[in-house]
């Protein structure tokens, strides 16, 4: 976590506030003024069809893409105004689980997990680093894979290792980009359970991008439905399930 006390100064109960975010690609407006708030300790699912701009939205939140308009406030910081150094500090407090896992395939699992620590927690001794790596892998049930290469693991195991790497800096917010896509229903459910366990154990706030309704049901405290670049509907799983809106109903039928 960031150790600069000034960095924690402006936080409130809303850990992420997104207002009027717009983003276009070659004239195609994907986000047309999307707004939402993520409260401390909650898991917000952003539900939407493939290509609706869900991944674009969280990539804007983590600073991988720059919105054309709007403001994004993360842990009290307007990320569009942050310097590169401050953005890097903020990124230590925000974990990101990529849809493709994005494990460094030239490194072992241990090196993958050590990678962010070697840069941000240089005061840790080798024993402390090792302790953290083992603890993070134990959290996801894969302590025995520590010296394997990512290519030696199954898709589900890679997802767990990627999650362990996301946890290694003990982030306050975790962004999950379609965490169960490409996994079989049982492994998908295990990953969903893991997301809930992590949320309960570390009290993280999370945004889950998904269209897998089993994952949505298991993880969501609240759901925002993204349609045509705006927040089309909002509510809990049960509220949306009871909706008579034809578009919303399609997700639950």
């Amino acid at each position: 976590m960031a150790e600069d006390p000034a960095f924690h100064a402006k936080e409130g109960d809303n850990v992420i506030v997104v207002e009027g975010v717009k983003k276009s690609f070659a004239g195609n407006e994907v986000l047309k003024g999307f707004d939402f708030v993520l409260h401390k300790g909650e898991t917000l699912v952003i539900l939407g069809r493939s290509g609706s701009g869900k991944s674009v939205l969280i990539k804007c939140i983590i600073g991988l893409m720059k919105p054309d308009a709007g403001t994004i406030n993360v842990l009290g910081n307007n990320i569009l105004e942050l310097s590169i150094g401050d953005m890097d500090k903020l990124r230590m407090r925000v974990g990101f689980l990529f849809q493709s896992n994005a494990l460094y395939d030239s490194m072992t699992i241990r090196e993958n997990l050590e990678f962010p620590m070697r840069r941000h927690l240089r005061h840790l001794t080798a024993d402390e680093v090792n302790e953290r790596v083992v603890a993070a892998l134990t959290d996801v049930g894969l302590a025995k894979t520590i010296d394997l290469m990512p290519s030696e693991l199954s898709g589900g195991m890679q997802k767990r290792v990627a999650l362990a790497r996301t946890l290694i800096l003990q982030p306050e917010i975790i962004l999950y980009d379609e965490p169960t896509t490409g996994l079989d229903p049982i492994t998908g459910m295990e990953i969903s359970d893991l997301i809930v366990e992590i949320q309960e154990k570390y009290q993280t706030s999370s945004i889950v991008i998904s269209h897998d309704m089993k994952c949505v049901e298991r993880t969501a405290d609240r759901i925002d439905v993204l349609l045509n670049g705006i927040c089309y509907a909002e509510g809990t799983y049960d509220e949306l399930k009871a909706s008579t809106d034809p578009y919303i109903k399609q997700y639950f039928d």
Partner: peptide, 17 residues
């Protein structure tokens, strides 16, 4: 190239490297 298409470069970016 393969690191770019498998989002490993983005992953370095979000880990503050």
């Amino acid at each position: 190239g393969s690191m770019r298409v498998t989002e490993q470069i983005d992953s370095m970016d979000v880990s503050g490297t």
